[in-house]
Amino acid sequence: MHSNKLGWLLLAPTLLVLFFFGVLPFIYVVYVSFHQWNPFAVNPDMVFNWAENYRRVVFDTQFLASLGVTAAFVFFAVISELILGYLLAQAFMKDFPGKAIFRTIHTLPLIMAPIIVGSIWKLMTTPSIGIIPNLLDSWFGYDLNIGQSAIAAFITTVVMDIWHWTPLVTLTLIAALVSLPPDPFEQAQIDGANKRQIFWHITLPMIRPAILATVFIRLMDALRTVDEVLMLTGGGPGSATRYVGVHIFKEVFPRTNYGYGSAISVIVLYLTIVVCWLLYVGLIAPRNKKG
């Protein structure tokens, strides 16, 4: 009993911080989402409008379009980061000249603020001035113009996200690979298993928790991407890179559509939870059941 009280006492500061900076704002956002509230309207006050904002969300073609491009963005970015991150992690498990320097350089993007990343990529991709369009033009005769081509802009945002976040995946997977016990691998080699079999039947299952944790983190991060895309493309050309985070930002801040923007935020949060739950059910739960 005594230790129980002490436990709560020690937890209290964290719980208080969580309540005031996490739970309370969330409750407020839910509350606002049931109101019509634009401070620059003729009536700047909050007006309770039941679930009208949620009804509008369902029929909002701009929001639905932004959900579609976000899903594509998340899929391509997270899958690529996972594959590239794993390959890099495996490379870092081996010794090679300049490994320490390469690992430091490779980790640098991770410590950059997203707005800086967006600025760097904007400078590198500005049509006819940036280094990337110039190189692509001189090497392949390809005219990269992310201000005009929707596909080019989309791919560039995906590549930028990969550049920014792959080091996180690499570092997580290095930690997972380093902690693997050597016995199963030695046993498999004695039994004559080849590299592919070792990867599929030993490495992958053993690092699966780390992979899933990384996927969850990156999935949630990618779903709320705003700063770097806003800086690079502004959500354009047209609505090609108007991901949900950007869409919410534009609704809530410049347009000051607080009520409706809050409703979209709640819906996106709900969708994020559903996606994570589906991943959990599909990938972790069956394994636990078998075990």
Binding site: A41, Q148, G236, G238, S239, R242, P254, T256
Partner: peptide, 22 residues
């Protein structure tokens, strides 16, 4: 107009679609 940014953000997406030829 007291609704400057609000109106701009409401119609700008259509304008951007004109610029891209959509």
């Amino acid at each position: 107009y007291p609704f400057h940014a609000q109106l701009r953000e409401a119609i700008a997406p259509i304008f951007y679609d004109i610029l891209t030829g959509k």
